[in-house]
Design a binder for these strands. Sequence first.
DNA 1: AATTTGTAATAAATAAAAATTATAATAAAA
DNA 2: TTTTATTATAATTTTTATTTATTACAAATT
Lengths: 312, 312
Amino acid sequence: MTITQLYYVLAVAEQQNFTKAAEKCFVTQPTLSMQIQKLEDQLDVQIFDRSKKPIELTEVGKKIVTQARNIVNESYRIQDIVDQQKGFIGGEFKLGVIPTIMPTLLPMFLKTFIKRHPKVKLKIEELTTEEIISRIKDGHLDAAIAATPLEDENIKERVLYFEPFVCYIPKNHKLFGKQNIDSTDLEIDNMLLLEDGHCFRDGVINLCKVFKNHIDDKFQLESGSIETLIKLSNEGLGMTLLPYLHTLDIREKEKENLHFFNDPPPAREVSIIYHKSELKMQIIEALQDVISGIIRGAIAFQDVKIISPIPK
Amino acid sequence: MTITQLYYVLAVAEQQNFTKAAEKCFVTQPTLSMQIQKLEDQLDVQIFDRSKKPIELTEVGKKIVTQARNIVNESYRIQDIVDQQKGFIGGEFKLGVIPTIMPTLLPMFLKTFIKRHPKVKLKIEELTTEEIISRIKDGHLDAAIAATPLEDENIKERVLYFEPFVCYIPKNHKLFGKQNIDSTDLEIDNMLLLEDGHCFRDGVINLCKVFKNHIDDKFQLESGSIETLIKLSNEGLGMTLLPYLHTLDIREKEKENLHFFNDPPPAREVSIIYHKSELKMQIIEALQDVISGIIRGAIAFQDVKIISPIPK
DNA sequence: AATTTGTAATAAATAAAAATTATAATAAAA
DNA sequence: TTTTATTATAATTTTTATTTATTACAAATT
């Protein structure tokens, strides 16, 4: 049994297709077929059920894949140990970012990070919190930036900053007259929200829920981007909530529609999250350092009230 | 990086000698040297400090060895998964047994076990509790039979039976006249004990301690085997305590010297212990079944007072 | 100081294994 | 039925691991 064989097994299990798996491994299809056959012969057990249309794992196969993933991941850790020892910060690093953080945070820290750590090959992907969690667990992401706390025992979190919510209230809205908004003023069925799967949406719902025990399932309108949300709001379709960093680069005219919360403002906790195995910890710490440093200048709220990002 | 390379590294780390490690791996010395060099080249780090007299691990080397042990052990688990799936009970199994259990328990279950599980190649070794714990942790033992509880978070225990202590009191001893002994009668500085490192000794000391807070460090006499203990006792050198199973095959004449404790008698808990990773669990369960079945007929005490085997 | 001994490294040759190219076999889809 | 998609097999090449033989080196012994 070799690590390579296990890696091939993982690829086939993932792609459910020898040919595609072979491409992903940068070898030809017969190589994969033969190595996997060899492993199956040695173990004297079928890992894959090749009779099924898209290839399936056998029952033992599933257990073997789980264990193979362990072994392959643990093998990466050896290079990690060496890097850590040398203080080397480099190599490929896959970072996930949730959509409502991506456009505001990324431009702020990316240039600085790349300049400071030129050997790191950052691969950034925009993903929902749910996708992020599953990809951190299966090793497809090294870390991610998301709203926390997530309360997942396999995932560790390091808080980067707290980002207050700001109300965006169009002129025709009944709350427009109020200078400062209180959380108790919010009404969920009067609010434009992001579509399902965005944790920012869940955060807002939780915020409203704090004061209203039940919510109607019929929300007025839902959108995929905060940019759209603002436009819809401008059309007089309702108020909405924006994460503070988004308010920094909206048009001057629209700034008039911003209303801040009374102290302490509700806020989301934004963290860098990673698998509990702490692989590539040097890079995670490097990211944390850069982002914390950058954000320190941008957000200056002291006391905030943290809203959970998980649907409850 | 291959599992084989990691295995070679472990062998050299253990033997502190390339030549001996090569023998243990059934390859020639240049094979080992080259594979380890190759790994060191790939990682671009020295794992071994070859300038030191018996070869030493570098600082990174130590961390790599720890991780390599993980990976190699986890790779064994794949065969384990297959065996478990097939209900196959076989292969080499290394069992440790503490000295005070070895001579009495082994003859009772060994024949039955071998008959019932002929494919298992049992390798039994007599070891002290301390040695057992360290060897279970480093993977040199698959399981062991020892007095418990050990309170070690890396080791799991399954109780096999409770074995009461029986007093062995020579005729000239002041307690000889008493038919049934009470724990409070025991005096540590009046007791023949096994030499240091035997947990049965620690158990006895704990038992005496229950009623006397301090013990003199000058014990009367210490011996390496229970057989000797009995002989010394016969010479009038003091009383001693025997585990119940030992009393089943002593000479008729000596049986007169046995005095049982009042209920509930002090006893030791005997368990099969194994690493928390639960490798080769089928064989461990098979052992447990056989031993529990055999012992059920031999020991019939209900209520016992368990004495800890750990020095306190 | 020279020699022996124990031990690891190196070189060249061999054996073994992995990977490739080319092709066949198979099953599902058109 | 033919096409398409996909995996298996065969023969060949490339790569890698292993071996044998030898060298290098340091410590211990003479």
